[in-house]
Amino acid sequence: MTSTPLSTTILCDLYARMLFTRVVDNAISQLSQKGYLDRQGKGIASCRGHEAAQVGSAVCIKVGQDFTLPYYRDLGVMLTIGMTPYEIFCTYLQAAREPERSSDIHHWSYQKHNIVTGPAPVATQLLHAAGIAFASKLRKAAVATIAYCGDGIVQEPDFLEALSFAAQQQLPVIFLCEHDCHDPLQSDIPDLLPLFPAGLAHHIVNGVDVQQVYQATQAAIQHARAGKGPTLLQLTLKRVEPDCGSNGLSLLAPQSDLAAYDPLIHCQRLLQEQGCWDDQWAQNIRTRASSEVERALQDALLQEGFTT
């Protein structure tokens, strides 16, 4: 894996995208707390702490060409690929009107951008990803398939079956597992290496560092496009529930030691190390993001017949 620093332009873009994801995520949590969604917030899964893992990988996807199979927390993936906040809010509000769909609101789908809807059983989307990649290989199409999952599926039989089939057939597929860790900087995740099949490239990546995620995903996609087979990226991160009273822009939690696990703060420090951090710029993008998301939220509430 390369460690060459990213350009300021790319880092600034990644920071802005992560910030935007956090503002949208916070707005969804506020919708749930105010009772617009289901009664106990069932099915509302925050992506806070996942922003670097999701945005840093999704910007590498060729939208409309590659196939993406997200999992239910992948709000940052959906926004990065092109789903708008208005569309996301409408999806949540429509599902809230139909109790029978309440468990499906995170089964993301965006057909026009080759996003495949995930099933309810966990891990099966990885088998679907391997199948799509197999079809792409048979067609000799210059297509990569990117499948996301959470750490809860690594013990599922479908997880290893997908990895084994992809490795055996040397398929152009990348599996990204977002691991919620006690200490992501220490990569304290189960050692699954003995279970992995030959022919599978495997890397553990600091999922708090958007630069590392971006570089690892770029390398994995190039590896796949070159016909060298599948890659599993285990992205270590720390998930914390959102603080809805702070507009989603504070630290992950009041404890100062958790600041090290906040992807936004980590990216800010990278920019500061390059001498490129600008407080006024950061304030401007926060203001723009908050304004855009608020307009989208109000439009969605109006569209779906809710009064504010």
Rank of each mutant, 00 (worst) to 15 (best):
V116H: 09
L19A: 04
L37K: 01
D191K: 13
N114R: 04
A123P: 06
H106T: 15
L235D: 09
G118E: 06
K140T: 10
D278E: 14
H128E: 10
L251I: 06
Y36R: 12
Q65R: 12
D38E: 12
A141I: 05
I189H: 03
L163D: 04
A289D: 09
A224Q: 05
A133W: 00
A16Q: 13
L126E: 04
P254C: 10
I115G: 02
R101E: 15
Q222F: 03
P172S: 09
E156Q: 13
V77S: 05
L271E: 02
L176I: 14
Q170I: 00
I10R: 08
S290M: 10
V24T: 03
D13P: 01
Q169V: 08
K112I: 12
R295H: 10
T91A: 15
V122A: 14
E178L: 07
L302T: 13
T4S: 12
D191L: 11
G152C: 07
F165G: 08
T91Q: 15
V293A: 08
L93I: 13
A259M: 08
Q94D: 13
R48H: 10
P157D: 15
S164M: 10
S187Q: 14
V116P: 03
E156Y: 00
E98G: 05
G82Q: 05
G199H: 01
E51H: 07
I174R: 00
D13A: 05
Q212L: 12
E87G: 13
I265D: 06
C276Q: 15
L193K: 14
H107S: 14
S256G: 08
K34E: 15
